[in-house]
Design a protein around this nucleic acid. Sequence first.
RNA 1: GGCGCGGUAGCCAAGUGGUAAGGCAGAGGUCUGCAAAACCUUUAUUCGGCGGUUCGAUUCCGCCCCGCGCCUCCA
Length: 495
Amino acid sequence: MALRLYNTLSGKIEEFQPERDNTVRFYACGPTVYDYGHIGNFRTFVAVDVLRRFLRQSGYGTNHVMNITDVDDKIIRNAVQRGMSIFDYTKKYVQAFLDDMQTLGIQQPERIVRATDHIGEMAHFIHELERSGVAYKTEDGSYYFRIAKFPGYGKLSKKDFAGMTDGARVDVDEYDKDNARDFALWKAPKEGEAKWETEIGPGRPGWHIECSTMSMKYLGETFDLHAGGEDLMFPHHENEIAQSEALTHKTFARFWMHARFLLVEGEKMSKSLGNFYTLRDLVLMGHKPSSLRFLLASVPYRKQLNFTFDGLKQAATSVERLRNFKLRLETSQWAEGSSPEIVKLANDAVAQMKAGMDDDLNTAQMLGSIFDLVRDVNAAADHGQVKKDDIPALMSALSRFDEIFDVLTDNDAGKVKRVVQWAETEGLREKVSAEAEEMSQSAAMSDAQVEELVGRHSAARRAKDFKSSDAIRDQLMAQGIILENTKDGVRWRRK
RNA sequence: GGCGCGGUAGCCAAGUGGUAAGGCAGAGGUCUGCAAAACCUUUAUUCGGCGGUUCGAUUCCGCCCCGCGCCUCCA
């Protein structure tokens, strides 16, 4: 079975294959860097990350390009307000975004490209469009795309613009667009705002042209897939198609993937409702990066995800269960030999996970399969039916899962620590919760230090000095370390 | 208003024309020096409502109710 993906362009689920060789060329719309990323942004980026990881797991190479929009109205406005250049203003948010990606375990695309590094190429693109008659210049020096010249306009967002185009004509000399729907390719300079001198005159690019220019530059005139949040379908992606295909007369992106918005506590996230959270807000509140990633990845990308604090707690417990299972596989004493039934369970789980993911990236089904395996193997292990030679197959099944979810390795403490340190340098100390503080501190204790205390605990227990052993266990607990005595010996993990 | 998506147990959520995966939470039990972990049993006669098609629908069709998105720069 091969990957089947919902293609916004056709409105259907289609089999997905890269067009040539074994490499998937895809472009994902990245952030506009005027502020810290919020949890809604990251739902989309996690969804793209899940796609990326599954493609690689399926044996494809990836050429994944993500843009960073570092010039737009908001950025210009904020930079002007602060008396900064847009480069200086966006610098901090670019870095914050990259750090946040790492916090959430989002893999780096092969290429991250910035709009402001491609201004000349965008101007050239617009020049070519003008030459072919689909773009026109207005009196003030702005350029617009004439949608009436592009018959396919609306094919992505399924909008019918017939009858709306070329209605009451407005003269070009009237200093305005020909048609209300025509969109800006290039904006004439305004006093005090950032501008570039280019072959089509001074000014700055419109929003959509950067993605057309950069995607085709790095991926070719036709590439395999283009992804983004559902709001980008119109006008952004529709306009990208218009610009690109008007120029090349070739299919721009073969597949379009759109991630659905999330809700927060059942409501649309908005600053006015007070349910607007950046990733950093949530980490400072004491939520683990792994819980956040798990929750964001657990709901298939085309479903509306209801992001709740209860759900976050549930996600944390679920991750813990999976990590405990892995720890059990790693630390228990297994009898020699093998059990074909156990290996079969592992192989079946792998097959089911793949089947789920092949079905339009059904991460919920993948989760169901891995938890089935966890329950069945835990039960078998309790009955002594798991043997030493079964472990590799089980670990391999866990790896298949974690190649997508990436939550099994506990590196939460270090990530939380970094965010806590950021909060301190930004003067946001009061936003650091006790939980975040505790997690951050647990990162201070090295594995070796923990092992040392664990050793003393075990020695005391062997001597039946439970008072001492419990005291050590309590001490570790206070520092965010959970110590467990199992029949196979002692083991520990971070809270 | 136009176009589109969705409503499955307390919460998150999969799925199918043939009678409801999985996780979390809850209840009872097993194991255990205690704790933790783990396991077992249990929790939707029912899939927003009303009709229709069908031997049979949660799954197909129609209508209604509710939630959500886009309809010019919000992922």
